[in-house]
Design a protein around this nucleic acid. Structure first.
Length: 288
DNA sequence: ACCCAGGGTCGTC
DNA sequence: GACGACCCTGGG
């Protein structure tokens, strides 16, 4: 691990606010100069824009260009995806325009699983706090520019953490779920390496659903936001339910809208790009 | 002071 | 399948 810099010129579909505030990640924090600093895997990275250049700088393990290309999903052609989505209808056209710089990060599978278990019936500031305290207590230190950062702890590092320990981080009733899932993964009841090799989205999903604290919504978030990277899932939370009802269903009692109905419409309208569609709609609705 | 909601899941009926 | 409970924090 050493300090490295990487400059990326004229990259399309890349807006810091869109990427880091669209709800997919919890460890990136905005800096006074408009850039963001975050920890992922064994890296601390700062990202900022200068004109038509994106500058990545930080303590990085391995070659920074390779790391950035993978994490920021730079090989995917988002222009093409946006073009396809825009053609679907005027709603999509607008939401894609609004979040034109969104990219779906390739986040560590294990970290994504735990983070989204924590996210259940929770709000973003609190989720971020719990994850930060977890990292501080059980992760590894990385020092950079007079500050200390902490990596997200690996399963082995949580081996001896008790339910009470999770509770004392402020995790609330999710404590037992974090504990159980950690041990299911340590005991290879769910083997993350095998899961990563699986090609069938539904099989992956079924496996994830066996984990404690992982229901349909959390499973879909893991599939979409982790290195599993399935774009053909549609996580339905309160915001997506709201926007889908407003745009396509128009039921006066939003809570009465069936999940199945939303799923059906999403699949029909957005096809195998429904995950991306969800993300543009989510960002659009939450910010606007 | 009190109520409500927040990227839901789980057990119970 | 529907319903309530669940920890905790911030905002009205």
């Amino acid at each position: 691990m050493k300090e490295q810099t990487y400059r990326l010129k004229n990259q399309d579909s890349f807006e810091l606010n869109h990427i880091f505030d669209c709800g997919q990640c919890f460890r990136w924090n905005k800096q006074p100069n408009g850039g963001y600093t975050g920890v992922f895997r064994q890296n601390v990275l700062n990202v900022q824009r200068q004109g038509n250049e994106i500058i990545f700088q930080g303590m990085v393990t391995g070659d920074i260009k390779t790391v950035v290309t993978d994490y920021f999903d730079l090989k995917r052609d988002y222009s093409k995806i946006k073009e396809q989505l825009s053609k679907i209808d005027e709603n999509m056209n607008q939401s894609v325009k609004y979040g034109e710089g969104i990219r779906i990060l390739n986040q560590d599978l294990w970290e994504t699983i735990l983070s989204f278990i924590i996210s259940a019936n929770n709000n973003i500031p609190r989720i971020k706090g719990i994850i930060e305290r977890l990292a501080q207590k059980y992760g590894e230190e990385i020092k950079w520019r007079d500050k200390t950062y902490y990596t997200f702890p690996m399963p082995e590092q949580l081996k001896n953490v008790t339910v009470e320990d999770f509770r004392s981080l402020g995790a609330g009733f999710r404590d037992i779920r974090l504990y159980e899932t950690t041990h299911m993964i340590l005991d290879k009841k769910v083997d993350l390496k095998n899961l990563q090799k699986e090609t069938d989205t539904l099989k992956m999903r079924e496996k994830l659903l066996t984990l404690s604290g992982v229901g349909p919504k959390v499973a879909d978030c893991i599939l979409l936001f982790s290195s599993l990277k399935r774009l053909d899932v549609f996580p339905i939370d309160v915001w997506v339910r709201r926007v889908m009802n407003e745009l396509y269903i128009k039921n006066p009692d939003e809570k009465k809208v069936k999940k199945k109905e939303i799923e059906k419409i999403a699949r029909k309208k957005f096809g195998n790009l429904e995950g991306l569609a969800q993300q543009y709609l989510f960002y659009w609705k939450r910010e606007a």
